[in-house]
């Protein structure tokens, strides 16, 4: 469903992604690991359509359609979802209002009124989020872990077919990690998942089909779950030669 071909991306003239290839099919869980600054978030942002990034070469297709012809909101409506590493703060906009608007824009048959409430309550219960979050402003004053839970809440409500999860596991306590993993496993069978992480520990709960190592803007090695263990143990230096 997602096909990235020979992707080259630059920001403000600096080249960051340098010839990246990736294919994700429905039902597959992919993991990308790599050093700080390797370009992982850049990849996720570019796929979702962040205007700051320039694609200088190569292309990305979602369900056969070239992404360049789709605006950001159209990508969301087509089923793409990005869980942000650093979710933006939107002062003055209540979480409840925002979720309602978002669900109404993204889903084909948006649930209304009581049905929506019910679904929302269920999702929040699953994520062990207090109802008081609904009247708070989007990410305003949220702790790191709370922000990640709100990202997961959005994912559960928007029911994406492609989920890009950028360090959703960072900053989570052990219970939260388990809860987040449950959320991912819930949508995974029907979706493609791309999980960006630094730690093997999420993978105790979520079983990836593929693990990719990213060095300096390109995927240099792909393997199964055992690669994640190996990377955690050995670091990335041994792969530098391959880059």
């Amino acid at each position: 469903m997602l096909r990235v071909e020979n992707l080259h991306v630059s920001v403000e003239g600096t080249s960051i992604i340098k010839g990246l290839n990736l294919k994700i099919h429905r039902g597959e869980i992919h993991v990308i690991m790599g050093r700080n600054g390797a370009g992982k978030s850049t990849l996720a942002n570019v796929v979702m359509g962040h205007p700051a990034y320039e694609i200088t070469d190569g292309s990305i297709f979602f369900e056969g359609r070239p992404l360049e012809e789709m605006a950001v909101f159209e990508r969301a409506r087509a089923g793409m979802f990005l869980s942000f590493q650093y979710p933006a703060v939107i002062p003055g906009v209540q979480v409840g209002t925002f979720l309602k608007k978002s669900v109404a824009s993204v889903r084909d048959d948006p649930p209304k009124g009581r049905v929506f409430r019910k679904e929302l309550n269920a999702a929040m219960a699953q994520l062990e989020m207090d109802k008081s979050f609904l009247s708070r402003y989007v990410n305003d004053g949220f702790s790191g872990g709370e922000k990640k839970r709100l990202e997961m809440l959005q994912m559960l409500l928007l029911k994406p077919t492609l989920a890009l999860l950028d360090e959703t596991d960072s900053g989570l306590d052990i219970d939260a990690l388990r809860i987040v993993a449950k959320g991912i496993n819930q949508i995974a069978p029907e979706a493609g998942c791309l999980i960006i992480t630094h730690y093997q520990r999420l993978l105790d709960h979520v079983k990836p089909h593929f693990v990719h190592a990213m060095i300096d803007g390109a995927i240099v090695k792909t393997g199964g779950p055992e690669l994640a263990l190996e990377l955690e143990e050995r670091g990335y230096d041994w792969l530098d030669a391959a880059a």
């Binding site: 950001v72 942000f84 003055g92 906009v93 824009s105």
Partner: peptide, 25 residues
Amino acid sequence: QLFYLMSRGLPEEEAMGLIVNGFFE
């Protein structure tokens, strides 16, 4: 901020409208 809201399915104008409403909240 705009990108965040757009990535949640809001066209740019709607995203801007929401941010502006939030600012006046």
